[in-house]
Design a protein around this nucleic acid. Sequence first.
DNA 1: CCTAGTTTGTGCACCGCCCGAGCAAAACGG
DNA 2: CCGTTTTGCTCGGGCGGTGCACAAACTAGG
Lengths: 417, 417
Amino acid sequence: MRSIETGEPGHSADQVTVRRTNLALVLRHLRAEGPRSRATVAAELGLTRSAVSQLVAELAERGLVREGRREHGSVGRPGTTVELAGHGIAGLGAELNVNHVNTIALDLAGEVLSERQVALDARTAPAEEVVERLVELVERTVADLARRDVQPVGLTVGVAGLVDEDGVLTHGPNLGWRDVPVGPMLRERLRPAYDVRVDNEGNLAALAEATPGDPDRRDVLVIFGEVGVGGGIVADGRLLRGRQGYAGEFGHMIVEPQGRRCGCGRVGCWETVAGLRALLDQAADPDDPVRDPSLSLDQRLTEINRRADLGDTRTLAALDQVGRWVGVGAAVLANALNPAAIVLSGYFAAVGHHMRSAIETALVDGVLAPGAGGTRVELSTLGFTASVRGGAQAALETVFADPARVERRPLARGALR
Amino acid sequence: MRSIETGEPGHSADQVTVRRTNLALVLRHLRAEGPRSRATVAAELGLTRSAVSQLVAELAERGLVREGRREHGSVGRPGTTVELAGHGIAGLGAELNVNHVNTIALDLAGEVLSERQVALDARTAPAEEVVERLVELVERTVADLARRDVQPVGLTVGVAGLVDEDGVLTHGPNLGWRDVPVGPMLRERLRPAYDVRVDNEGNLAALAEATPGDPDRRDVLVIFGEVGVGGGIVADGRLLRGRQGYAGEFGHMIVEPQGRRCGCGRVGCWETVAGLRALLDQAADPDDPVRDPSLSLDQRLTEINRRADLGDTRTLAALDQVGRWVGVGAAVLANALNPAAIVLSGYFAAVGHHMRSAIETALVDGVLAPGAGGTRVELSTLGFTASVRGGAQAALETVFADPARVERRPLARGALR
DNA sequence: CCTAGTTTGTGCACCGCCCGAGCAAAACGG
DNA sequence: CCGTTTTGCTCGGGCGGTGCACAAACTAGG
């Protein structure tokens, strides 16, 4: 029943393809199921033990797996577990946002190898300068890696706006940018040996939440809220970009045609009732410190949580009201996409536990399928790092899709038997 | 930039996989590009001429391709074109709807081999009896094929309602059915040699509109309107079902929270403002013949078109108003999914040319991406046969995905060479 | 302690498939 | 009529997975 496809273009297959497929299969299996012996892998994947031995040997030569400890069964010769190694390579993720640029480097197992951030104001600085800051940050991150003899395999940059297939930011209202060729600029300045891609930050956040391999995380919808509301869709394990890469712009769905005017010029956009501003307008008077933009967002959200915990009726009513709207929009999307989970990220993750019941009620009320079609509401635990993590994971995913991308080098002595 | 995937489960590859992949590749290439010589196929697909020769020979043995006419180039030996044959097999599509069941059989090239229909009232008859009618119709269709020595390769049944992965209709409000195991019942009664699958009719209609191979038809959203409104999503060439197969229930998106009560019990569902009833309520008084349910839908829609053509202001205003709402809902979906095309099917296709400008205006107004993100509005030309055609195509797609499913039989004398 | 039984990991022959080279066949042009 | 071009096929070669055999390593039981 899974996935009817309508004629993928695809490419011709030969023995190299077979090898690539099986290398990738073994590597992803080790990621999904954890360390295990060659014999176990063979049984679980339907390959022979000899084939798995050869595949593991090649993955080890590429520095992607290593042998672990002995695994004693009840009887028989004990196996030697094989596990992800991948300390030799890293995926790079970066984010270019209104008031900061930051980077992260993850190894194959998803461990953080380097993390850097620089504050700036993208609205006042020219685009060239902002990109230059990002270039410097990436170069320092790559230097961090070089010190540990780690090779970057790819860089994915998330930006707040619409990005076309070539990596050009065509429309970035929050940054105040239009038609800025971020991807080409980065490639020009970095001249990298690795791939550089640019994507919408909501898409990358969605990728970060869609844990690879978990069947309950193959259909995930991420809703990211701050002043604006955006997100991304992972369906059947694939990130949906749409025809021009503009999918996931949930914030400007019109949910209340007789509602308030939005910053984008339209009336009744979802972010006018579910965005941070809607919450603050209802929860606090204009001179209330939680609306003081000079305080950090974290501080202000902590204060709102404190008031809600103390039972402040105005705060609770505001959270309930906004939660209801979040649920209404979530229901619209759930009717269309029937995701396994809707993950709330950004400011929703910070105060979401106080909105959860209102969201869930509105979701169940608004979805035709009984029990909201099984869609669960979850709060992101990745906080504001979701986009960069997703970017780094996207880069790593190219290795999981084709481990032969990583160069083969003579095995360090004693690394494998 | 295409498709980042997050760890498909996948299956191990060997030489058989290589063969299957390349057989499928050649077959799909012939479908997408039309008849051409082996040498041309080899050049276009990056295979060697010898490989293509062998692949074509095997496809011919399975009855899927045949040689066509001589193809004279400017110089050199002329090639012999190879083209889709597939008169030996057929995909079956069926539909189980409120007032009829019908079937269709398509050959590999999409030509209709058989088409049958029986009227009934699924709301009053017990489910067993309705399924029995469908069984009879399928058996007669299979008999039609047998007379021409054609083998069915699969049957896909579209039903008006939510279908889970096992083919159980869990929720069919228009049929008045709940938890009817349509798939298991059909398999039990037919005991078929071919696959039987059951799916939502909107999903199958979407599949029918997403022409295989066309890059402009890889991201398509179908909106099917009758009394209810439903649809389906094809993204990146794949049909989206969602976690439990409930994706595409657009009709019950809430678009007007202060609006009218819907048959489903909610308030402000899209179908209350975009469904057929909304149009009729605004276009005609209760005693108007266009609202007479004893007349066929075709007749009533023809009358509406006639009035609109004559410039009847009330009719035009109703079409404009409903079109605006169609556009509002389409915009919500386009913001989320950025499809290449939104195809209007069902009653929308019949009167859509009078609603088109209203729809497009509301779409452009409601989508954040400039120019509606490139999303075009199109009217379906498949009429009410979209679902059955999509079902038959889904069955055929299993052959295009794996031509080795069709049995190999000794070549008829002189069929090839 | 020693042996039978079990399981792991590797080596080797075999098979299937695509590649590349070579060749006959079938046109066209001078 | 012969050189040139292009097509479609045949034939070794290499690659990669399968299946079988075998040594290695450990448990259980006498």
